[in-house]
């Protein structure tokens, strides 16, 4: 087990190295932070040179990359070109808002998708199933910014029940988490349905049923538990990417999360913030994936991770 974890962590170093290189090159190919900073000012040649030097952009590219790499391994991701503040601090101060929204969205999605998926599967081919499938199709096909704006129009402007935007108390999370949750629930409900259908056709379900166990008990205890694995995998991956901030939802609801921070940094070509942000998110993603893999054996004890003697 420990060996397996260690091996996985070792693998992740390659991943991080590859990502760091891609981010580093892509950023430098597509824009110049100094030019963006000057806006409509008077960028004389010497002013541009001074600014470049003070940002460390006068060094050769390979040096800049090595400094970035060293930063990753010494946990010092540098300071933002724009704010002069440490990048790690900027990102972690935004993490709170993002994590809260990600959790709330996933919870909303689970509350909707699990019953919908199970009912769809158990009542396969009936009107219930049809309704459930229509629902997930809608969830899949709505663009999230459109759904967000529609929810704002309805619940904030028309009914005046909820604030349209902001990050101020528990009321303000309802609309963004509902938007996120509804979209996620679409895919998730489909997944629960198909994986339930697969499980419900297994022999042990028939056996359990023939033993006289009540139908819902069979469905939940024998069926749902075994159908969980693809669901957990999906949620794990989704959650990992949700931690990167749901840029569009954050934008629509003026939610001050990591997504907005990085998007702004990209348009300003604030290299340290983009680089540091991407690296932190990549690490989180690696970590979440590892957790997902480890969780399988708790869901299904028959699954054993590599490296442990059976």
């Amino acid at each position: 087990m420990l060996l397996y974890v260690l091996k996985r962590l070792l693998h992740s170093i390659y991943v991080i190295l590859a990502i760091s290189l891609i981010v580093f090159i892509a950023l430098r190919l597509t824009g110049d932070p100094v030019a963006v900073m000057f806006g409509a000012g008077e960028p004389t040649k010497s002013a541009i040179e001074h600014l470049r030097a003070s940002l460390g952009l006068d060094k050769p590219l390979i040096m800049q990359y090595l400094i970035f790499l060293k930063g990753i391994f010494t946990l010092n991701l540098g300071t933002s070109f724009r704010t002069g503040q440490p990048v790690s601090g900027m990102i972690f101060s935004r993490m709170g808002a993002t994590v809260v929204l990600a959790f709330a969205g996933v919870i909303v999605a689970l509350i909707i998708a699990i019953p919908v998926g199970i009912i769809s599967a158990v009542k396969r081919g009936t009107a219930w199933d049809f309704l459930g499938r229509i629902f997930s199709l809608l969830g899949l096909s709505f663009p999230n910014f459109w759904l967000g704006i529609m929810l704002i129009m309805f619940f904030a402007v028309y009914l005046d029940w909820l604030p349209a935007s902001g990050y101020d108390g528990p009321v303000s999370i309802i609309l963004p988490s509902l938007t996120l949750g509804l979209i996620l629930a679409g895919v998730l409900a489909r997944l629960v349905r198909s994986s339930m259908l697969e499980v419900l056709n297994k022999q042990y379900i028939t056996v359990a049923k023939s033993k006289g166990t009540s139908e819902w008990l069979v469905v939940l205890r024998h069926g749902f538990r075994n159908a969980l694995i693809p669901v957990v995998t999906f949620l794990g991956i989704q959650f990992g990417s949700l931690l990167g901030g749901t840029v569009i939802i954050e934008q629509v609801f003026a939610w001050p999360g990591v997504g907005q921070l990085i998007i702004n940094a990209i348009s300003e070509r604030d290299y340290p913030v983009v680089q540091g942000g991407v690296i932190i998110l990549a690490l989180l993603m690696v970590f979440v994936n590892l957790l997902v893999d480890l969780s399988y054996q708790f869901i299904d004890p028959r699954i054993k991770v590599e490296g442990r003697k059976a």
Partner: peptide, 18 residues
């Protein structure tokens, strides 16, 4: 000063009196 980047949301906040 509230920072609301999306114009549709900003208008919704204006219409709700926020």
């Amino acid at each position: 000063f509230r920072i609301i980047p999306d114009p549709s949301t900003r208008l919704a906040d204006f219409q709700t009196g926020a």
